[in-house]
Amino acid sequence: MNKKAEFGGLLLRIVLGIIFIGHGADKFQGGISNTVQWFDSIGLPGFLAYMVATIEILGGIALVLGLATRIVGAIFILILAGAIIKVQFAAGFIGGYAYDLALLVMSIYLLLSGSKLFALDNLITKTKHHY
């Protein structure tokens, strides 16, 4: 992959990570019990609120650091697909699923392409990339 594409992947990885850290933290700061009740109200088990919020924070941190980028991308795809199908789709495109769709596409990109530039995965796997 060329330098411009890797830089683009780095930007996507960091921005997506920051967004998910914010979303996960908001679920806890707003009172996770409120999120649990909301999950219950839309027909999802309340305990999933804890799982989703934790995955969003830890997955976001992993993306910023460049750890398990493809795996985190795949997990975020599942969360976003669920959010779009279960909640956002009924609200329509604008004001509904447009934002989640953009995050979903970013996650798909990271699943398919990864992001090696400034990624801690490079230290773990000790692979060398020549640009």
Rank of each mutant, 00 (worst) to 15 (best):
G30H: 00
G43M: 14
G114M: 00
A74D: 06
L12W: 07
K3F: 12
F93K: 03
Q37I: 11
A5M: 07
S33G: 03
I79Y: 00
L120Y: 08
F76E: 10
V15G: 10
L117I: 06
K3P: 10
F76A: 00
L58E: 08
A5H: 08
P45H: 02
K4W: 11
L44R: 08
T127Q: 04
V87F: 13
E56H: 13
G96F: 06
F28E: 02
I18R: 05
V52I: 08
I71D: 03
L12K: 08
G82E: 05
F7I: 02
G46V: 00
D26Y: 04
A81N: 10
K116M: 03
K116Y: 11
N34G: 06
D26F: 08
I42P: 05
L65I: 09
A83Q: 10
L104D: 00
I79G: 09
M106E: 01
H130N: 10
I79W: 13
V87T: 15
L11T: 08
F39K: 01
L111S: 11
F93H: 04
M1C: 03
V87S: 02
I75E: 01
V72A: 02
D40V: 12
G8E: 06
A83R: 06
F39Y: 07
Y50D: 06
F93D: 09
I75G: 02
K128A: 02
D40M: 11
G31I: 11
L44S: 04
A119H: 08
W38D: 13
A68W: 15
G17E: 09
S41Q: 05
S33F: 08
G46D: 00
L123S: 15
I124W: 08
A119D: 01
G66W: 00
L103V: 05
Y109I: 04
W38V: 15
G17Y: 01
A91F: 10
K4V: 05
G114N: 09
A83E: 07
M51W: 13
V87R: 12
G59M: 03
F20R: 05
I61S: 13
I75H: 00
D40P: 15
F76C: 04
A90Y: 15
I55S: 07
D40I: 12
L117W: 01
L110D: 05
T127D: 03
H130L: 11
G30V: 02
R13G: 08
